[in-house]
Design a protein around this nucleic acid. Structure first.
Lengths: 185, 185, 185, 185
DNA sequence: TATGAATGAGCTTTCATTCAT
DNA sequence: AATGAATGAAAGCTCATTCAT
């Protein structure tokens, strides 16, 4: 049963690094240090490795827990904090996060899980913003859209645009969003 | 010479649909209606098909031209317009756009071209915002970051999150960004 | 010990259905509802399952008993009766019969058992015909060849030509053989 | 294109010898003296090799031609002659004939072709017998059944019961059938 | 310039069998 | 006596690429 985890570990590393198609099951077995045949003892086929990987190791619960633990502070610090925590989770689970992003176009199950995670995060951040609005800490008429804009930028910075320094970009985004743009009359 | 274009057409469709790795050169030849051998007569190897594809068909010039043609109107309408035009270009060149997104992690040349396009768009949108600020149509202290936030959201809506209606989300984003969030004192 | 019989039951079904080569020991274990390893606890290898199957379950004794019980009646009715009984035995033990036919070319032990069964049946039917000739119920100069012709046709109808209705063909054969063909002088 | 015939030659030999399942495509390539990959250049999959083999090389036309050429002689000699010719064809095309017999249970297309051949032969032999009856050379009320009985025995002798000398058994069968059995009153 | 046959490495998967417990 | 994990050879098949013509 430990072998199964070693196979998942290896698949996680290789899928994140080279992508699903470019990773051979033989390569997974080697990286895991198990004989080739054992891969198919634990997983019916290569696709199932990916599915089990995202099912068993998606960090949805971890992310929800950490986002919900965001402190009740003024809006600016809270956005900073939520962003930092999200980036921290993504960094800690970077391999899975990259797999979710990369393999979504080809694997509906992965796409669905990835969507759930985004929507969950948006829901939590949006709820927080709503609360802040109700408590008068914040003026914002579309909290959910703000949450979405915020999250999409964090995902982009952390997982898509490799040239960005995510931490620093986060600061920019938070300050820019709070300052806002104002259409002059 | 027409055969070469047919091969690129076929590759464009199949790479966008299934990804580079999952597309066979035989499949490209069939889709293009040309004999197998011809693919390697025009392209040294499979990788070169992808490289030529993004080199010859990236829509950087088209995008720059259309973004620069944005009218000098009030900020809100201008953002709407820029967003609409960007979405229009991406929709018209959707296959290439998807290839840029999908294949970037595995192909540095693709990643670089994709980065250039993003940065170019951000530059143009940022310049516009700066102009608007200078002309007093807009209050904004970080025009480039605003442009980045704006563009990343459009890319996400158009190419990554399949569940979003890009057009409608654009409206939400524009209005939300212009309204802004205000950290209450 | 019951497990062993369950394994033989499963093997009998699957070998008859798909053939020996196309049946996996894992498939046998599943069909039998026993763990994989148990198959090799009871049988040294896959081949031995087949050998034990035809050794323990060939219906030679059953067939001999039922053929020998044929009543002493007029030749025509007796042939009908012998044929019907043979078809009944083959139908009741259809799986084994099909295995004998299918696997004979690849497994000498199976071929030998199958041959014994044919020869035994021919012997019994031939003896009966001889008796009938001696008692003057029948004119026939080569009883054994008649028995052979008769049996081969029944086997063909029951196990080889799937388009034939064995029961009806039996009637045709009996009547045709009794009528005979006569070379006109 | 010569390579394709060599592959079919090799498959014919090996399928007849060991059966379809026990023959590897690698083995076929080796026997044919071609690289492994070429097998799948000419045949989409292993099954298709078998299908093309029986489609292109079934000896239906050859058999029909040779059976139809049977001389107009007295019934006994004619049966001998038809039987000898059938055995000659089967002997000359023994590999294909064995493949038809062996692979019918697992491959419907093979079974169908094999059935067509049997029915065609029965039709031709039956027609001949009918003609002989009409010309008064023969007394027989069920020519088609006689043809069927006759053919099944030849097939059995030639392809199923390895212990029989087909030529000699043919003589036995012809004489026995012509003598007939007579149910004494 | 164009082509289809040829090539062999490598892929995913299956499988009979072994073995520690 | 019973079991499920482990093993590695071999299977069918795919594929990018080469090459003679």
């Amino acid at each position: 049963m430990q072998a199964r985890q070693r196979i998942l570990d290896a698949a996680q590393v290789l899928f994140a690094l080279r992508g699903f198609d470019a990773t051979s099951t033989k390569g997974i077995a080697q990286e895991a240090g198990v004989p080739q045949g054992l891969v198919f003892y634990y997983f019916a086929n290569k696709e199932k490795i990916l599915e089990d990987l995202v099912r068993e190791r998606s960090f949805l619960p971890e992310m929800e827990q950490i986002l919900r633990a965001a402190p009740e502070v003024r809006a600016k610090e809270a956005l900073h904090e939520l962003g930092r925590r999200f980036l921290a989770v993504v960094t800690r689970r970077e391999a899975i996060a990259r797999i979710l992003v990369r393999e979504s176009p080809n694997h509906p199950q992965v796409a669905e899980r990835w969507r759930q995670m985004r929507e969950s995060a948006i829901g939590i951040i949006g709820s927080y913003l709503e609360g802040a609005v109700e408590r008068g800490h914040l003026h914002a008429s579309r909290p959910e859209t703000i949450a979405r804009i915020f999250l999409y930028n964090l995902i982009f910075a952390a997982l898509i645009d490799e040239t960005l320094d995510a931490e620093q970009y986060l600061n920019n985004v938070v300050e820019t969003m709070l300052e806002g743009i104002t259409d002059s009359p």
